[in-house]
């Protein structure tokens, strides 16, 4: 899967929660008030189901979740090691 495809899928998922077209790829998502448990758990499940990988306790780092780029980076690394 290319980086562009991963970005598209991620944006499409985030679009359920925020106006993704108004957010820059490196903009802080949590500043938009997204860090609640419902969103957090759905994001984890999205990454796992869509890209067939497992989010581990070691991945629990804001740097992996706080922007579109960060999430795409996490997924790219996960796919590479899967």
């Amino acid at each position: 899967m290319t980086a562009d495809e991963i970005t598209e899928k991620t944006k499409s998922f985030l679009g359920k929660f925020i106006k993704v077209e108004e957010i820059q790829a490196d903009e802080d998502l949590f500043a938009a008030g997204l860090l609640n448990s419902l969103f957090a758990m759905q994001l984890v499940l999205f990454v796992e189901k869509e890209f067939n990988c497992k989010v581990e306790n070691d991945d629990l780092d804001l740097k992996n979740f706080n922007s579109i780029n960060a999430i795409v980076g996490l997924i790219t690394r996960k796919i590479a090691t899967a």
Partner: peptide, 18 residues
């Protein structure tokens, strides 16, 4: 410690509560 510092509510309690 379960998970990481700062993730206790959003992820760990979130999982438990679900």
């Amino acid at each position: 410690l379960v998970g990481r510092i700062g993730f206790g509510f959003s992820h760990i309690a979130g999982t438990a509560l679900d």
